[in-house]
């Protein structure tokens, strides 16, 4: 067990290293440098040169890379030139927003997906099952940004059920109950969008798992002991099918990260995805590199988590 985890962890290190090199090289190719925005035609060229020299932009690449990675390991990603603050602090604020949004999304995701999957499996080949399959098919096919826009238009603008942007109402003081409620309320529509988009794989997996379980011996044993079918479902089949579902958590995290770029932009939610798009726009490359690195790390962590849960659930894939 520990061997598997350790091995997977060690594999992560070279992957992160190659990723950091790739990001660094990309950052070097970005048009303009961080000062481009603040330069006017009458800025003295000598002054620009001085700024570049001071920021270390004229050193050889391996020195710049060494300095960057060394600082990054200590959590220092430099300063954002547009926000005039430490990148780590800026991302920290945004990451908290993204974290809460993701948490609510994952909870909603499981609340929607598990009952639907169980129902579809239990009443397989009925009209109910077919409706659920149709639902999961549509949510599988629809692109993130289309669903997000349609939700925003319909629930936000037409029905006025939800706020259409931002993360909190300005009229509330931080720390009060109203503030927290307003925050939750702002996150609800983006979270529902996320949740609806992510349900497909869990519903389909749970459904086929339960259909398989119906013909298993342990179900027949339980049934012949006189346990009512309803209890066989809740106590026996559901429990057995639930463990593999947990393994989806890792993939869900990966999916959430990819989707956050679209969802946060559309709902103008101040999280990491939106920060990424706005930093690309302003060529704030210290923020971009830090964000790509962080997302890469989190994606790796997600797949690591999936593998660990899988190896707990299914001992055959452990490395001995």
């Amino acid at each position: 067990m520990w061997k598997t985890i350790l091995r997977r962890f060690l594999v992560m290190i070279p992957q992160l290293f190659v990723l950091s090199l790739l990001i660094f090289v990309m950052a070097q190719f970005m048009p303009g440098d961080p000062f481009t925005g603040s330069i006017t035609p009458d800025t003295d060229p000598a002054r620009i040169e001085e700024l570049r020299e001071k920021a270390g932009l004229n050193d050889p690449w391996y020195e710049q890379y060494g300095r960057w990675i060394g600082n990054a390991l200590q959590g220092d990603f430099g300063k954002s030139y547009t926000y005039k603050m430490e990148v780590s602090k800026l991302i920290g604020e945004r990451a908290l927003n993204t974290f809460w949004l993701s948490l609510i999304s994952v909870i909603l995701l499981y609340i929607i997906a598990i009952p639907l999957g169980v129902l579809a499996g239990r009443y397989s080949n009925t009209a109910l099952d077919k409706t659920i399959i149709l639902y999961s098919f549509i949510t599988y096919a629809i692109p993130t940004f289309v669903l997000a826009l349609v939700f925003l238009y319909f629930f936000g603008y037409k029905l006025n059920w939800f706020p259409t942007g931002g993360s909190v109402d300005v009229k509330y003081e931080p720390g009060t109950f109203g503030y927290i409620w307003s925050k939750m309320y702002h996150m609800l529509l983006p979270a529902i969008t996320y949740a609806v988009l992510g349900t497909t794989s869990i519903i389909q997996f749970l459904r086929s798992e339960i259909i398989d379980a119906k013909s298993q011996d342990y179900v027949r044993t339980a049934r012949s002991k006189g346990i009512p079918m309803r209890k066989v479902y809740t106590r026996h089949i559901f429990r057995n099918s639930l463990l593999p579902i947990a393994a989806f958590l890792g993939f869900t995290i990966t999916g959430l990260l990819g989707g956050s770029i679209f969802i946060e932009t559309i709902f103008s939610f101040p999280g990491m995805g939106q920060l990424f798009i706005s930093s690309i726009g302003s060529r704030d490359y210290s923020v971009i590199t830090a964000l790509v690195m962080l997302f890469g790390f989190l994606t790796l962590l997600g797949s690591l988590l999936s593998d660990i849960i899988m190896s707990i659930v299914d001992p055959r894939i452990r490395i001995e």
Binding site: Q15, V18, L19, L22, M26, F29, M30, P31, L257, G258, I261, F276, I277, I280, I288, L291, V292, F295, G296, T299, L300, S303
Partner: peptide, 21 residues
Amino acid sequence: IDFFITIPQLMIIIVFVTIVP
């Protein structure tokens, strides 16, 4: 392939698109 699958593809494609002259 393992490496390509573990990187945040969407972000890297966006960065690529912005740096191509």
